[in-house]
């Protein structure tokens, strides 16, 4: 057995499964690393407001699946001098009590190399990774390497993914399966796309792994609409927009609390 450096109780999938078993709907907010000076305080506030895990967006120069809000946030963070190493080092200084999942584009992983990248993740106590541009066919070597360190590599399923392929992706995904709620880039949407519920149902029918729906999930109402069909939601742009507008840790706390309440049926 390989030594596992992520403590058992912080392992992503175990944590999400046990929360689900306890009857909870899962909430995973997304925060762009380095967007503001107090971004680590934001992460703490998001955890305190009831997140089950937190996606940490590491800024990349060419975010092709991100819409205007996260593009702008990434650009701001890069202009502030944030690097994957610096962002993860800052995270390592706090302990937020919920699993962290580092989301970014795979060039940063390949450029650093698996050893170096995994080293940063381990020092930051990060329990999972998401690379939206690293599909199933290309993800294998990293997923295996990461698994050896106790890090879960999460794969994505889209509205256009066939059922057979969705089943295969879910089988290879670790931590949870990320259902992309709509055909489009990340961004704040008025209405929940019909495809979000479709993806949730399809995934739930092919896997026992936690199924979270993200992209275009923007409000407590959307979270409530998805709750009967999925194990939980990922909320990105709506939160990042609050932060970009200067909402700070308090704004983040209030918004994530409202999502938590919606999922808890309050």
């Amino acid at each position: 057995m390989t030594a596992v450096s992520i403590p058992e109780e912080m392992a992503l999938e175990a944590r999400l499964r046990s929360r689900r078993a306890g009857g909870a709907k899962l909430l995973v907010p997304y925060v762009t690393a380095g967007l503001t000076d107090d971004w680590v305080r934001v992460v703490e506030a998001v955890a305190a407001a009831g997140a089950d895990a937190i996606e940490i967006g590491i800024p990349f120069s060419d975010p092709i699946i991100d819409g205007p809000v996260i593009q702008a946030a990434s650009q701001t963070a890069l202009e502030r001098g944030v690097t994957p190493a610096s962002a993860l080092a800052e995270l390592g200084e706090v302990s937020v009590g919920v699993p962290l999942v580092a989301m970014t584009y795979c060039n940063l992983l390949f450029h650093a190399g698996f050893h170096r990248y995994a080293g940063w993740l381990e020092e930051a106590g990060v329990a999972g990774t998401i690379f939206p541009d690293l599909p199933k066919e290309e993800a294998g070597p990293w997923a295996e390497f990461a698994a050896g360190k106790g890090i879960a590599n999460v794969l994505l399923v889209a509205p256009t993914t066939s059922e057979d392929r969705a089943r295969a992706i879910a089988a290879e995904s670790r931590g949870f399966v990320y259902g992309v709620g709509l055909m489009g880039v990340t961004g704040v949407r008025e209405q929940l796309a019909a495809s979000a519920i479709g993806v949730a149902k399809r995934l739930k029918s092919v896997t026992d792994r936690p199924v979270l729906i993200g992209v275009g999930v923007s409000s407590p109402l959307h979270a409530r609409q998805l709750a009967p069909h999925a194990d939980g939601v990922v909320v990105g742009s709506a939160l990042v927009k609050i932060l970009a507008d200067g909402g700070g840790p308090e704004g983040a706390y209030d918004f994530v609390s409202s999502l938590r309440q919606a999922l808890d049926g309050q």
């Binding site: 290309e138 889209a158 993914t161 392929r165 055909m183 489009g184």
Partner: peptide, 12 residues
């Protein structure tokens, strides 16, 4: 080379 696209584009 390869095919490093987000899953929503894979079918296309």
């Amino acid at each position: 080379g390869g095919r490093f696209v987000p899953e929503p584009l894979m079918a296309a």
